[in-house]
Every structure is written in structure tokens, then in C-alpha cells.
Design a protein around this nucleic acid. Structure first.
Lengths: 193, 193
DNA sequence: TCATTAAAATAGCGACCCCTATAAAATTGT
DNA sequence: ACAATTTTATAGGGGTCGCTATTTTAATGA
């Protein structure tokens, strides 16, 4: 009998590479080495499997990143490490390019609207996580009280989405990090050059 | 007989909203009011039609944007107007959200790899267009000689892709423009605040 | 050992995919 | 007006989609 986490790992990888609409249940059952009825008894449906595969992957990747944000590092340092970690995730060898969530199900058939809402909600949650860290920085005096933490969070969210898109198009790790370094110069505060 | 440009306009809109994989030839023929054989005699195949619809849309939208870049405006002003125009395109009423190219065919089934290469090439071309404008700025002394125009172009390219993703997720025009304004503070040069 | 339960595999449902051979209708030229 | 040509519509081929009823195999308990 197939281990549930192994199955989710295989499914996540397929969905990551080919997207929701580009992955068929036949692809999934073949990669997992199971028959269709087993997939449906274990995971319910293709959409349910996608949701569970997303949850599974996020649970594994997010703890490390949340720790960076929860740490006592200066907010700008924490943000930098956070983005670097995402850039690393976008360009892992022998893994699909880009992020499984950032650029998933943006254009889609009508029948997949509920799946698109799901990934959109995950992206919004990730932006809110950044905003919460920036709000904390305001409370702790690291950012001025009038700082627009919402726009800051959406700006770095856009960088994360742009990195994923460019990684899908073949960008290497160094390029993404150069992009991050430039994005960090938009951080509030004085600048030397 | 269906006018060719009308057909391309209808196809472009469908592909824009639903993506390449999410749009069926039945959707296309129905929206155009033609029968399948007519579609294939006029456009060759679904992939050819997508290519032609992309060319058609780009030809229409890009001239205005290229004029902004070709103008004698200071490079930072030109860039600002260019990005604002894209933000407007991402949030037009009664049109699909986001950009038809920026966030298209990022994840895809293997059989659609050639389509993905096509949209990736279009994105790269748009980045090279930005880089060319920045290189001109170096030549004309608006930017220091050691400015990294390639990274600058990829950075604003990432902003364009992030805006498209967030527009797909429901972001309004004002939010995208706030994001642009913040991204422009990463432009080389001294800053007041 | 044999009946009973649980697991896996097969076969196939109706619907849709991209695309095309063929038939019907409309247009044209004389 | 009638034949030749072009355009439109129908029908369907070969395949895959997500999903499931049914059968076969394997594991379990008395």
C-alpha cells in the first residue's frame, strides 16, 4: 500500500512542474504506481489531491522561512534571508523551476475557478505574513510609523512572483539574487549611492 | 466570412482569460461563430492561432509603449509611464485581468513545451527592450557607466510579472501603481527619505 | 482449510480533446 | 437558368479527460 506522504510528494512534484491543468490523473496514478480507484479512495478527487499536495509542500517549506521572519534579526536582514531562501527554492537542481504556488493557476478554464481561488488565497496569505513582519518592525521602531507596510508586502510579493516566472523561463540562482539585492534598495531609509 | 482580425481579437481575448491549456478549440469556434474546418483553414492549428493572436495583440499594444521608451523623456519618467501603462492594461474593465503574456504558460504539460518557449521568448524580448532603453540612458549620461542595466531590466520585468499575477488575483489599478512607485525608488541615484 | 474481508487491477462510463473527411448550401460565371 | 466553384455545416475518428462499477487477487480469521 502506498504511503500517503510519499504519494503527496510525488503529486506535488508533478503539479509543480506541469500545473494543475497540465497534470492528468493518469500522470498521477502512473507516477505513484497505483491504480485510479486507489487514488480516489486515498485523496478524493484531483482537486482535493492538489489541495493536499499544496498543504503538504507548504508545511514542509514554510517552517524554515517562518523561523527567519520570527527571529530577532533586523527586519531588513530577515527579509533578505527570506527572499534568498525563496530564490534557492526556485532554482533547485533536479526539481521543477519556480515556485509551486507563486505562479500557479493564474489563467485557467472556468471550471477550475475554485482551484484558482485556492492558489490566490495562498499567495495572499504569504503577503499577509510579510506584512505582519513589517508591522512588527513598525511597533519595534525599526520602521517609521507612517510606513506603508501593505504596499511593502505586496511589492516584495511581486518580486517573489516575478522571480518564480523568470525561474520558469530559465533564470539561474545568481540572477534572482541580483534581482533581490536591487529590490532591497527600495527598502525605506537613507541610501549611500 | 469571418474577418481575420476580428477572429484574432476574439481568440486573443479567450486565450488571455483562460490561458492556452484552458482554452479549447470548441471555445474558440463558438466564440468566433465559425465551424472547426474554418478555424483550421484560416489559422492552421490551435498553436498557430495562439501565436498569431499573441502577435496581433502585441502589435496593437506595444506601439504606444515603445513610443514612450523611444521618446526624449528622462529615462526614469519614461519608465514610470511605461509601467503605468502596463498597470492600466492589467486592470481594464470588461477585460481579463493581468497581462496576456507576462504570466502565460509558466507551468505546462510536456506536450506544450513549444508554446511555453514562445511566451518565454516574448517575455525575454520585453526585458531586452527595457535593457536597450537603459543602455541608451548610460550612453546619454543619464545613468552611470557602471550601472547594471541587465539586472535593472530584469528587476522591472519582475515587477511587470508580479503586477500581472496580482491583477489576476484581483488587485486594483491603484494597488499596482503604488507598487510601481515603490519599485521606482530602487532606481539608481540619491534619495531624499 | 476454507470462508470472509480487504486490496488491487481491469474495464469502461460519458464527456471532451484536436482535428478532418465528407456532405450540404451558397455563390459565382456563362 | 444551369453548371462549376467556393464556402459552410455536419458528422465523426482516434485519443484522452476525470472518475467509478465490477472483477480479480491477496490477506485475514476461525
Amino acid at each position: 500500500m502506498l504511503d500517503r506522504d510519499v504519494g503527496l510528494d510525488i503529486a506535488a512534484r508533478l503539479f509543480w512542474e506541469r500545473g494543475y491543468e497540465g497534470t492528468s490523473t493518469a500522470d498521477l496514478t502512473k507516477a505513484m504506481g497505483i491504480n485510479p480507484p486507489t487514488l480516489y479512495s486515498m485523496f478524493g478527487s484531483k482537486e482535493e489531491l492538489y489541495r493536499q499536495a499544496l498543504d503538504f509542500s507548504i508545511a514542509r517549506e514554510n517552517s524554515r522561512r517562518l523561523e527567519i521572519l520570527r527571529s530577532n534579526l533586523p527586519v531588513r536582514e530577515a527579509l533578505s534571508l527570506y527572499l534568498y531562501d525563496i530564490a534557492d527554492g526556485d532554482t533547485q537542481p533536479n526539481k521543477p523551476r519556480g515556485c509551486m504556488v507563486s505562479t500557479a493557476v493564474l489563467q485557467h478554464a472556468e471550471e477550475n475557478a475554485s482551484v484558482a481561488r485556492m492558489t490566490a488565497a495562498l499567495r495572499e496569505a504569504s503577503i499577509q505574513t510579510l506584512k505582519a513582519r513589517f508591522d512588527r518592525a513598525v511597533e519595534e521602531g525599526e520602521l517609521p510609523a507612517q510606513a506603508d507596510t501593505d504596499t511593502l508586502a505586496r511589492f516584495y510579493g511581486a518580486i517573489i512572483q516575478g522571480m518564480s516566472a523568470q525561474a520558469c523561463d530559465g533564470a539561474c540562482n545568481a540572477r534572482l539574487k541580483a534581482l533581490i539585492d536591487l529590490a532591497l534598495t527600495a527598502w525605506p531609509g537613507k541610501r549611500s549611492t
